[in-house]
Design a protein around this nucleic acid. Structure first.
Length: 306
DNA sequence: TGCCAGGGCTGGG
DNA sequence: CCCAGCCATGGC
């Protein structure tokens, strides 16, 4: 076991680890536990920063700083957000929410499994997958065994039936296909980060079961493309409600709007909106009423093209 | 119970 | 371009 304190101001660990970008963090007592790569990790919020414990022992901590992005000055991101009522309310409610920098394969696999699933269910599927096809990490005195996330080769070696048996349903062939693509080199995850956003996106979209939404989740949560902007049903409804007076917005126009409105860190803004709406209205999906959410009143004018 | 979930694909206007 | 139907599964 090794322990360290990572200096981190403006870091809301609970919001970050439970905001639907990673699915394997569990709250135990006053700390969060999971596996990062082959390391068992426990994180606790503290006055002086994030208290981290890992097993087995490690000598350096760059991998964890990178995962948590704890050196990022949050203010430099927040100050680029549009100064409209919805974003101000989101920042006021969620300040300290961060974007992680996850392993690309785990992130890709997890979000392939995410389609039309609730977050609790995605967590369940991932847990089963890790339990069956990952390998256990035995923290020295731990009561609860944590398993690594199965590698692409480990998944590729399984049958579709074995994957379906993890309750992932029609997503099983997509996961298998992605694992094979990574193994045979037809998808080079290590190269995506060096590509322009649009090109990286189209690389991911070549996979079956991966469209623009899932691709952007991976590009944002694993590669840190600042303008990857996943539009799921929550964001769709939130933006319609907050910026378009509740009127339907078609995909094409939605795309133009988010690209032009949210600035150079639109992906971060997206996560703030997502978490704000989801924590504020945990069960009022799509209902038109209630909602004391500040809106940006005049529907945004997009007079000039592009 | 029926509706819906951090979607995407296919086949039809 | 748009839309409806479909794909499994389980929470609420």
């Amino acid at each position: 076991m090794t322990e360290i304190v990572l200096p981190a101001a403006d870091y809301d660990l609970a919001a970050t680890l439970s905001s639907g970008q990673a699915f394997r963090w569990n709250l135990r007592g006053d700390g969060w536990e999971s596996a990062i790569g082959n390391q068992w990790v426990r994180l606790q919020p503290g006055i002086d920063g994030i208290h981290a414990t890992t097993w087995p022992e490690v000598r350096e901590w760059d991998w964890l700083r990178h995962y948590l992005q704890s050196d990022l000055k949050l203010e430099t991101v927040l100050e680029t957000f549009p100064k409209d009522p919805p974003m101000q309310a989101s920042v006021q409610a969620c300040r300290g929410l961060r974007l992680l920098r996850q392993d690309p394969w785990e992130c890709l696999a997890s979000f392939i499994l995410s389609s039309t699933k609730q977050i609790v269910q995605i967590r369940q599927i991932c847990e089963t997958l890790c339990l069956r096809f990952g390998h256990p990490i035995s923290q020295s005195d731990g009561a609860v065994p944590i398993h690594t996330f199965p590698s692409a080769p480990a998944i590729a070696a399984r049958s579709e039936a074995e994957l379906r048996d993890c309750k992932m349903g029609f997503r099983a062939p997509s996961l298998l296909h992605a694992a094979r693509a990574v193994c045979d080199g037809s998808l080079q995850l290590a190269e995506l980060g060096g590509l322009p956003l649009a090109q990286a996106r189209s690389e991911l979209c070549r996979l079956r079961g991966v469209g623009p939404k899932i691709a952007d989740c991976v590009l944002l949560f694993a590669y840190g493309f600042p303008q990857a902007f996943p539009v799921d049903v929550w964001i769709q409804k939130a933006i319609q409600k907050l910026y378009f007076k509740g009127r339907r917005v078609r995909p094409d126009r939605m795309d133009r709007f988010v690209r032009s409105h949210f600035g150079p860190h639109s992906g971060y803004a997206q996560q703030y909106l997502f978490h704000y709406m989801r924590t504020l209205h945990p069960d009022s999906r799509g209902t038109k009423s209630g909602a004391t959410v500040p809106t940006s009143d005049p529907a945004p004018r997009l007079s000039h093209a592009n």
